[in-house]
Nucleic acid binder design. Structure first.
Lengths: 137, 137
DNA sequence: TCACGTGTACCATACCGCCTAGTACGCATG
DNA sequence: CATGCGTACTAGGCGGTATGGTACACGTGA
């Protein structure tokens, strides 16, 4: 578990996880935005800097940044760096909406197999909203 | 998209999907149990039969069945076949509970990036419960 | 102007999960 | 004993992921 704390931001990567490193970075940045840890316009660590901090390859960081930009979450300015997008406009993408529905369906099925009632799952969801986005959501 | 319909059960597999085939089988069987399409004690297709129907390798089906048995969802009886477990007793597995929480967290973050409000997500969850387990959940 | 930091684009290599193919074994049923 | 069943094992191919290295294009600031 390698950690990076530069200027208040905290990113950590688990090399041993089955989840790809570039996806770990993506998820943490998006979660950080929701939490408010990353503010619109904030500068992210440079590709080389973050790769050094996490002792991973620059290409891996670059891949994470490219995917995030493709999703519209961040933007890159050549020669300047990578930044959290300002005034993010969500678009009702049918594909991503379907994926979200599938993901949520999986949650419901898993909850059943863990013995969680509908009420308990709703509570879990409420707790997450409280924990993640006090003001934002 | 290959489909199998034997005795009322319907399983389909998308070879081109990035999701592993054995996981597709696992998810569909678990979803089928929640829906009630599969009843406790029901016999699943044999490894060879299902592999033939889906035109995939028997080992792939076997892997799906083994994982499902490890999760306690199904049980195999040597020489007889594979069956949906009767009287399934959910166990409060802390690991799986943590994974469920992570999955739900991802849902919340994705929902934010799709512009879905907390209310809309809760509605989506309610719809899924209605669609999946009318009586069971 | 020029050095520097930035993201980007290649290429080659290695590793690992997934899937296939084939063969063989142990067990329960009829 | 023949059949159907799950299981185990080996070998190989394929694609995604990550690494290592090099090179290029662009914007900034001295």
């Amino acid at each position: 578990m390698i950690q990076h704390n530069g200027g208040g931001i905290v990113l950590q990567v688990d090399i041993k996880s089955s989840k790809p490193i570039y996806k770990q970075i993506m998820d943490q940045i998006k979660e950080g935005v929701v939490k408010g840890v990353f503010q619109p316009g904030d500068k992210l660590p440079s590709v080389r800097e973050l790769s050094t901090m996490l002792t991973i390859n620059p290409n891996t960081v670059s891949k994470a940044y490219q995917e995030l930009e493709r999703e519209g979450a961040i933007e890159t300015r050549r020669g300047r760096g990578t930044f959290i997008v300002e005034n993010y406009k969500p678009q009702a993408d049918p594909d991503r909406l379907g994926q979200l529905n599938d993901l949520l369906k999986k949650v419901v099925v898993e909850a059943y197999y863990l013995g969680l009632s509908k009420k308990e799952l709703k509570q879990m969801l409420a707790d997450l909203y409280a924990k993640l986005g006090g003001a934002r959501l």
